[in-house]
Structure formats: structure tokens, C-alpha cells
Design a protein around this nucleic acid. Structure first.
Lengths: 344, 344
DNA sequence: TATTTTTACGCACACGTGTGCGTAAAAAGG
DNA sequence: CCTTTTTACGCACACGTGTGCGTAAAAATA
């Protein structure tokens, strides 16, 4: 079965203590025996048991990542960013998706805790107080990406949605749009609010009145929500000239609805997305959007978490909260242009 | 810090042995003490240490999943399928991406082995013999999804690409296309071959000659490969009427190139993708494609692996290989229609 | 050579959980 | 009431690794 340090010890004619020390580079072991032991270990295909080691050292070199769903292109890139950062540092990651279901979420956090992960990253999901208490009790630090709960968390990485929404809105205003609609996502309450706030702020800054009837909050942020949202919006308000969508997925859905119904984009209506998921460059027309540094958000979250772990291990208390706000940039493609004059 | 069974034992006035048995439902413990102990455990927020337990039981209730990249929409859905199946069974999953890099791959397999995962799923990545030997040595079963290496694996889940390509080709032939090109993906050699074989087979079955100049193998299967592939193909062969693309991503790229260059789809050229990634329903025009049951592929792989683990645990030898071939179905949307007569 | 210092390594316990075996107490049987 | 069976539980060891402390041998010093 699996090779243990005792097997190596037997073969090398020393005690397992010496093997353990040799493999960990303890200076009390002279080079020649150290080399001998390493060679034998290599030859026997020895790999230390993370379980046994973790039992003693109290850390596992494993992190837990909780997301809403894995097969979401936005999270996908964040996950990849996390993995990039983590891989170099020799950590492994557990990934689980909660589907916004509190039951799942609780059992995921439990599983993470049972595996005694060194830390947890929570990606754009509101998490129960109960789950946090669990992590607290087990002394597991958590970094929250795009905090969605009302609670303020100690360690967060967030995207500056307010700024992003401002840029998007300014772009539309600069083009001459005034009848701008917003298709939001109820579920992502905090993010949704920030984006809407950014939009309103720009209207205010431009001395324009924003028509609240132009806002529609959908139950989710998927393609379908954009599709049905666009449909509903046009039923209520036929005279909009541009739509700011919660994210690229909803924008793709909205775009699709318009094209299906013979409404030209951007000639009749301009569409803007948010996030810059990979695919948004290849819609027809290519989507104007706000480019979130998703991969960087992932790596920054992972780095922050690994720093926290290091501090925890070295026993430093570190009670001051940390949070990092990441900014992206507007990406003008072809789904936006100045509004054409229409008979009013 | 974390609560142990000894803590519970102290509080309940029994030995840790009794606690262990009570929590594991050992019948030698009478109900009333058992309930008492469970209550105390609950109250103290006890969660068993997976490490300590795994050390004794020799299994960790953790699986490893190796993919090419996490942020790929095709894998994303497979991953979600795996996670679905695994969650109900109380397993957790490590996910790591190799980027087709043998170095990464080796260190990932090592990490999985160190964590003594109960099994590994390898998703559409060719894996070194060395890595397999490692898994073998540690007695870790592996299920391979869409085997990409030349070696035949013991346990596999595959999609029936030959059948799929046949359906796709027949669809095009039925529409009246004969000048059908294929944009392939060199990297996915085995899958690529099967799809091309399916295509050729249908030509043969229809008594038509297939023009090998209409085949182009790209270095990858991303959107960009489709874009540049289409460009190159048109330079070489201007008179094609339909393109069968390796997957939806390349199809999206190809489609994008055509539209950018004023070539109408499907009036001038029909395009077919493969996989049916979520987004393919929302291209303009919506993509005709072959719908792979990705989520099912993931769940089936997970189930097979968990069965293998169960057998390994119960000591059954189980040396007969297993493999499951999954079939999808053609999904005709709007990127294909009969060819228009052109001046030849 | 005798003494002190250094070197090289092992003993024994710990981490948290599971389990074979043993045993006092309780229950059952006579 | 005594014997046998059953019940309820604990002791002690094991899993694989890490570590404080101790010690024999080797090296350095006197």
C-alpha cells in the first residue's frame, strides 16, 4: 500500500524520527544521511500523508471555496484565478456550490470544517450567520468576494461596482442617451444596489432625472432573466433607447430578445453588459461591457487568505480587518452608439 | 479550539471510546446514553476531524478532479454534474487544472495522493503514465472522462463522438450540403479523430467523396481557434457551403468571423457546433449543434468512481474494466439550412 | 589520556479517532 | 441465592507524522 516514514526508516537502518527530520530539512541531521534518506524516499515513491501531518501540525494546506454555481462563466474565471495563486503556494482547493440553498451551504461549510481547511473563500454568496459561527469556532479565516450579506465581513475582496456603473452610465449619457433602462438582479441585492446607485449618481451628476419606471429587477442574473426582462420592459416602456444590464449574461439574453424581434442593436436600442465574460466579445454585435478583473479578483482573494493563514499559523492575532476594492474598466464594443432620432 | 470526542467524553462522564461508538451508531451503546452523547456533541458544536478519522479508516470521503481548465464552459457543466452526484453522497472534491502542462499535472496528482483522496476523475486530459503509476501505487482508482491518451483505461465514461459526428454530418447532407469543411482541434487528438471519422463515415455511407482539403486542424478548441480557422479555411477553399466545427467555442469563433466579413449564416454558409454549451442557444443565429449530456457525463463518472471506492473499501478485487458510452442528440437551430445555388 | 563539548540519533509521547479484547455490573436463568 | 449470560463500557493500542528531551558515540580540548 502506501509508503510511510517507518518503511523508509527500516530500509535506511534508522528510526522514523530521523527520517522525519531528514525529510523536513532539520539541520541536526548531517547531509550524508539526509541525502541517503531522501534518495530512499524518492526511490520508494514516498508521499507524506496529509492527514497524519495535519493532525500534528494543525494545518492541512487545503482551502475551501464556496460559490453559487461552478458552471457560471463569471465564477469560472474567478475560480481559475484562485487556483492559479494557490497552486504555486502548494495549496489544494475544495470547491463546492451552494445554489443559494442554505441547507447545501451549511453542509458545505460543515464539510470544509471537518476537513479542517486552513481557510475559506466565499464567492458572491450570502452566507448564514450560523455558518460563520462555525468557521469562527474552528478558527478558520474566511475571505469574502463581493460580499452579498448585510453583515460587514472582516476580510473582503470586492469589485467596485459603483465606479463601474458610473463609467457605463457616463458612456451612455455621453452618447446622448437619456432614456436608459436598467435590468437588475434581485438575488444579488448588494451588487445590484451598487450598480443601480452608480447609474443614478451619474444621472444626478448630469442634472438629469432618472425615471424609476425604467428599472426592472429580475429574480436572477442568467441569460433567461435578460430575455424575459427585456420582453417585460418593452411591454411597459416602449420608448427606451438604451439598456444597462446587470451582467453580460442578462445582456446576452436581452440582446437575443431584441434581435429575435427585429429590433436592431445598437441602431434602435443600445445594450451594455457588465463583467466582460469571455463570450461577450463574440456576440453579434459584440457587447459593450465593463471589464471586471475577475482573474485578479480570484488571485487577490487567495493571496489575502493565504496571508491570513500564515498569520494564524504563526500565532499572530491580526484583528484588523482588511478589504481590497478592485477596479476594472469600460470596454466599448459595438452594442452601443448614439441614439437615432425617432418620431416622439 | 476544535471540540474532540475527548471533550465530549469528559462532559458526559464516559470514555472517548463510548463517545466514538455512540456517534457512529454502534448498537452496543444503549439508546439513552447514545442520545445523551449526541446531544452534548451537538451542543458543543462537534465536528469529527476528517484527518484523524481518515488515518484509521483509510478513506477520506474526498475525491480529486483534474481538468484542463476550470473556466471552460464545457468542463464547467461536467464539474457541476460531478458535484451534484458527490454532494448527496457526502463526498467533497478537490479540483485542479493542469493547463495540459505535464509538470502541473504531476504535482496535482501528487497533491491528490498526499491528501489520500479515495478516487480521482480525470476530465478530457491526457495524463502521463507516471501519474497513473502513482495512483496505482497508492491504490487510488481513477475514472477517465473522454479518454485522451493512447492508453486504454480501466474505467471510462465517454461521449459517443463518432455517433454524434454522424448525426451532424447526416443533417448537413440531408440539407443538400456536399462541400462540407471540418475545423478540428489537434490537441484533443482522440476526440478529434472520432468526430472526423464520423463525418467521413457518413460521406461514405452516402456514396460521396470527402475532400481532404476541407479539413483544418487547429492547435486548440477555443473561440480564437475557430475565428482564425475560418479565416484560413476561406483563404484556401472559398467554395465551401457548410462547416462542421470541433466544438461550440470554435463554432462561435467561426461564426463571428463570417459575420464580421459580411458572409451570411446560414444563407451563405451553414455552421454546426458540438457540445451544446449553454451559450450556443444565444448566438445570432442560434447555433445548430450536437447536445452532449455534459451534466450526466459528470454524474455518471462520479457514480462510477464512488462505486469503485465502495468496492475498494469492502476489499472486493473488482478487476474487470468498466466503461460507459453516453449519447446525446442533434439540436437543429438556425445556423444551418439548405445551400443556396451559387454560380459554380 | 581524561574531560568537556558537540554530533547524531532514538525514545516516548502527542495529534483525534476507531476497535479488539477484557471486565465489572446488571439481568436472566435455575 | 448462586450461576450463567448479557449488557455497558473502558483499556490500550493503532493509524502516520512531528518533537522535546535524553544519551551514547565521536570530536575537540586540556
Amino acid at each position: 500500500m502506501s509508503v510511510t516514514i517507518k518503511d523508509i526508516a527500516r530500509k535506511a537502518g534508522v528510526s522514523h524520527t530521523t527520517v522525519s527530520r531528514a525529510l523536513n530539512g532539520n539541520p541536526s541531521i548531517p547531509d550524508k544521511t539526509s541525502v541517503l534518506i531522501r534518495d530512499i524516499a524518492e526511490e520508494m515513491g514516498y508521499l507524506p500523508s496529509a492527514a497524519a501531518r495535519g493532525l500534528k501540525t494543525r494545518h492541512t494546506r487545503a482551502l475551501g471555496v464556496l460559490v453559487n454555481r461552478i458552471d457560471n462563466p463569471y465564477f469560472g474565471e474567478i475560480l481559475q484565478g484562485i487556483e492559479d495563486a494557490v497552486k504555486d503556494a502548494g495549496y489544494s482547493i475544495f470547491i463546492a456550490s451552494s445554489f443559494m440553498n442554505p441547507k447545501h451551504e451549511k453542509s458545505i461549510i460543515q464539510a470544509f470544517s471537518e476537513h479542517r481547511v486552513d481557510g475559506v473563500i466565499i464567492g458572491s454568496v450570502p452566507v448564514n450567520q450560523e455558518s460563520y459561527n462555525l468557521l469562527d469556532q474552528y478558527g478558520i479565516p474566511a475571505v469574502v468576494i463581493n460580499n452579498q450579506s448585510h453583515r460587514n465581513h472582516k476580510y473582503t475582496i470586492s469589485h467596485d461596482d459603483f465606479y463601474g456603473a458610473q463609467q457605463v452610465t457616463r458612456h451612455l449619457l455621453d452618447l446622448g442617451h437619456e432614456r436608459i433602462a436598467y435590468i437588475g438582479n434581485k438575488r444579488a441585492s448588494k451588487i445590484n444596489n451598487n450598480r443601480l446607485r452608480g447609474l443614478k449618481h451619474e444621472f444626478l451628476a448630469a442634472d438629469l432625472a432618472f425615471n424609476p419606471n425604467f428599472v426592472l429587477h429580475q429574480p436572477g442574473g442568467e441569460i433567461e432573466d435578460g430575455f424575459t426582462g427585456m420582453e417585460e420592459l418593452l411591454k411597459k416602456q416602449a420608448d427606451i433607447s438604451a439598456v444597462f444590464c446587470f451582467n453580460d449574461l442578462t445582456a446576452i439574453g436581452a440582446l437575443h430578445f431584441l434581435i429575435r424581434n427585429g429590433i436592431r442593436v445598437p441602431e434602435d436600442i443600445s445594450i451594455v453588459g457588465f463583467d466582460n465574460i469571455r463570450y461577450s466579445a463574440y456576440t453579434n454585435p459584440p457587447l459593450t461591457t465593463f471589464d471586471q478583473p475577475k482573474r485578479s479578483i480570484g488571485t487577490e482573494a487567495a493571496k489575502m487568505l493565504m496571508d491570513l493563514v500564515k498569520q494564524t499559523v504563526s500565532g499572530e492575532p491580526n484583528d484588523h480587518p482588511m478589504s481590497k476594492l478592485m477596479r476594472g474598466q469600460l470596454l466599448v464594443r459595438e452594442s452601443t452608439k448614439q441614439p437615432e432620432r425617432r418620431n416622439l
